[in-house]
Amino acid sequence: MHSFELFLPDNIKDASLRGGPNAVFKAAGTDLLDRLKERIENPETLINLLEFKKDLAGINPQAGGFDIGSLTSIHDIASSASLAGPEWRALKQAAETTATPQIRNRGTLGGNLLQKTRCWYLRSEAFKCLHGGRGPSCLAVDGENRYHSVMGTLDCMRVHPSNLAPALYVLGAELSTQSGEESNRFPIAELYPELPLASEAEHTLSDNEILTHIHIPAAVTGTSTAYVESREKLSFDWATTAAAVLLVMKGKAILSGRICLGAVAPNPIPCDQAAEMLAGQDASMELFGKVAAAAYAKAVPLAQNEYKIELGKAVLRDALAQASGLR
């Protein structure tokens, strides 16, 4: 890696004030360290947010929901007794499937939401990747694209790798950030760029904006959630497709639902139209099949990833079946 200045701030404000175009915030650093060593990230200053971990780690009940600090470890979410109910299950399932025990112990919720894509063209400086600012066009378009996007793309075929983001989407999470003295609160959808161009980062935070808390609102009676992802192996793999769902049930009847897909597009993809098909219906695999088809209706595969569409539908059906109690 290139040499850099390591800044150890006392508090969020100091950290934020040191932010800028040539600085990088570091949470656990599980991925950042790799990118530094590969020299695809070459900051002048590294700002270590773990200095004030005690202020930003923890799962605190709040008005029937939770405020979760952005530096809470993935393991703490996966093992939290507070999140044991069916209404929070999607979040726990997403946390449990993340990476490895070592990374779950160290890695943070904030880091998971703000991850860089795993696209192999981005992650090697030898490739003239558009998203990496090294070339004129996306190499995955007609390159090796078995793991790339099947929807929601513009000029970059990357997929968003966060498995916790889809779960937080369906839970209706909001995020708090701080920039200097100023704090801000907004729905999770606004964390991701409206138009995920290659020139856009994976998230919309500004250079000096620090994600501090994730707020999960209270759940309506009858809420049940689930998160399912497909992968090629069970130990340490990235999802090939993922789905998080929230259902509000009364007996067998679904009063309303929410769906968010992961690992199939540059952003997590909420599927409101497909979710509307659930409202007022009785849970059945037939219904879930139709909903899954609708969620993927606009998917357009690249040369090597058509399988992801069928797989994505299966995963979504499974998530709906789990949330509704059919499985």
Partner: peptide, 14 residues
């Protein structure tokens, strides 16, 4: 493209 242990997939304990 997958010349690392993140993308060169090797079976693990699970």
């Amino acid at each position: 493209l997958n010349g690392d242990f993140a993308n060169y997939k090797i079976a693990g304990t699970l």
